[in-house]
């Protein structure tokens, strides 16, 4: 229910970049001298983060703020930490950051916070909740549950087994998706049975291999849930290799251009898309509220949405962007 409601709400704002119907900064108040924001995302050139950047930049522009985006070359705290440390010299009014590690990044972020910079977490968050004033992230467990509901719809009451492909052991986001999926599967599709979570090392080749092995060992395989881009592409390859495209339902995660193309071509039957644009936009709104001394919401959960071939064109705003 909640999903539908928030989904509709977000669809409303996501589609109207340039309008400012819900931007608190516009309402005035004490205008601070420092109107510089900084966004440090998880990794360079990732459509997810680019979409987030697009949302953040649009929101900042509307509010009359400037925002600078930086990104490490890899999703790696040792590369992200120096970027954050360097911001100490620049002292933006607020820092929006997707910490690449929930512990390692804490000292650097605390240092920035102690300089008086407001810290907002976007996408990922630290374990230490005392540093950021607000955290906006996708509810990955909810995404997993949504995937299970979608799988139930796609298999329409059939009995059989489903395979869950996780990335690397210990990756919290994809683990939450996998766990949410397994839990919800019991509720929405009691006749589907999970044959367990397999790790793919985030390698398409390993994902393909896990899928064909599952087809060998589990003749009643009816569905595969792939928790991210690489596992999804690998799973699609494995299914095609086994001649099971369309027979085994593949639900992927995220909506990168290649996945969207795959959904259109029938390699995926559904995609669970996050809304990075909304995360970025909300992050900037929260940052500005904090800078201007207004009330800030500590935790905001960004909704996810299921895309299928039938309804994908109506939901095109959820496709991740490679440029704004």
């Amino acid at each position: 229910m909640l999903v539908l409601a928030t989904g509709a709400l977000v669809a409303g704002c996501g589609g109207q970049i340039g309008q400012n119907n819900d931007t608190p900064a516009q309402t005035g108040g004490a205008t601070p001298a420092n109107k510089n924001l900084d966004l440090v995302v998880g990794v360079k050139n990732e459509p997810f983060y680019i979409s987030m950047q697009c949302g953040a930049e649009a929101a900042a522009k509307e509010a009359g703020y400037t925002i600078t985006t930086q990104a490490p070359d890899k999703f790696d705290p040792t590369l992200q930490a120096p970027i954050v440390t360097a911001l100490g010299a620049k002292k933006p009014a607020a820092l929006l950051i997707a910490p690449t590690d929930d512990k390692t990044m804490a000292p650097q972020m605390k240092q920035i916070k102690d300089m008086g910079v407001k810290v907002i977490e976007v996408d990922t968050a630290l374990q230490d909740t005392g540093i950021a004033v607000s955290s906006i992230s996708s509810d990955n467990a909810q995404g997993g549950r949504l995937a299970a509901q979608t799988m139930a719809k796609l298999t329409s009451g059939k009995t059989g087994s489903v395979l869950v492909l996780d990335t690397k052991a210990g990756t919290s986001t994809t683990a939450a998706r996998a766990k949410g999926f397994e839990e919800e599967l019991k509720n929405s599709a009691p006749n589907l049975k999970s044959i367990g979570i397999q790790f793919t090392e985030n390698e398409p080749s390993v994902a393909a291999q896990k899928v064909t092995a599952a087809i060998s060992s589990t003749p009643d395989l009816v569905g595969v849930f792939a928790t991210n881009l690489n596992t999804g592409e690998g799973a699609a390859t494995g299914l095609r290799s086994a001649g099971k495209v369309g027979q085994v339902q593949l639900v992927g995660f995220d909506a990168s251009p290649s996945e969207v193309e795959g959904l259109r071509a029938g390699a995926f039957q559904a995609l669970i898309a996050q809304d990075p644009g909304m995360i970025g936009r909300t992050g900037v709104q929260q940052a500005i509220a904090a800078v201007e001394g207004k009330s800030v919401q500590r935790n905001i959960s960004a909704p996810l949405v299921a895309l299928t071939k039938e309804d994908m064109d109506k939901k095109a705003e959820f496709f991740y962007k490679t440029k704004c």
Binding site: E201, E203, P204, N230, E233, G234, T237, S241, S258, A267
Partner: peptide, 13 residues
């Protein structure tokens, strides 16, 4: 040809 993708974050090992 096989993955229909450039698998840019794959093949690391």
């Amino acid at each position: 040809a096989y993955f229909q993708s450039t698998t840019i974050s794959g093949h690391t090992t």
